[in-house]
């Protein structure tokens, strides 16, 4: 899998005894990918429907948050195969994401969203 070109360890030849290729991730098949894309399409359609249904407008924001979070998780988990990857990569993504979300929420509070 690692190629000559992709010799990022330009400190090549570093004899690291640990774990080369110990986690060749299982690849989801094309069929799974297409199924996920379908789900993403359906979720998007649901979001837009919710937007237009008058009766749901009091709970619009929570429903949208749930639906778009589901889409987010599907793309990150399967298309970016974070679900199958090592926990280090998960940390590299979800740590910063958590700080970003916390700052957005704090800024919303400071600008009077929750009053």
């Amino acid at each position: 899998m690692a190629s000559e070109m992709a010799h990022g360890a330009e400190a090549g030849g570093l004899e690291t005894a640990m774990t080369h290729g110990s986690h060749e991730e299982p690849h989801a098949s094309s069929r799974t990918y297409i199924a996920i894309a379908l789900v993403l399409g359906v979720l998007t359609a649901l979001e837009v429907m919710v937007f237009y249904v008058e009766a749901l407008s009091p709970v619009l924001v929570p429903i949208l948050l749930v639906l778009s979070t589901a889409k987010f998780v599907l793309v990150v988990g399967f298309f970016m195969h974070l679900k199958y990857d090592t926990h280090i990569l998960r940390g590299l993504f979800f740590g910063p994401l958590a700080i970003a979300v916390a700052i957005i929420v704090a800024m919303m509070a400071l600008y009077g969203y929750f009053l």
Binding site: M1, A2, A6, H7, G8, A9, G12, L14, E15, T16, M18, T19, H20, G21, S22, H23, D85, T86, I88, L89, L92, F93
Partner: peptide, 17 residues
């Protein structure tokens, strides 16, 4: 063969960071 401490290629880790 590229060897890294975690088994993750450097380029991929760079992109995630």
């Amino acid at each position: 063969m590229e060897r890294t401490s975690t088994g993750v290629p450097n380029e991929k880790m760079l992109m995630w960071a």
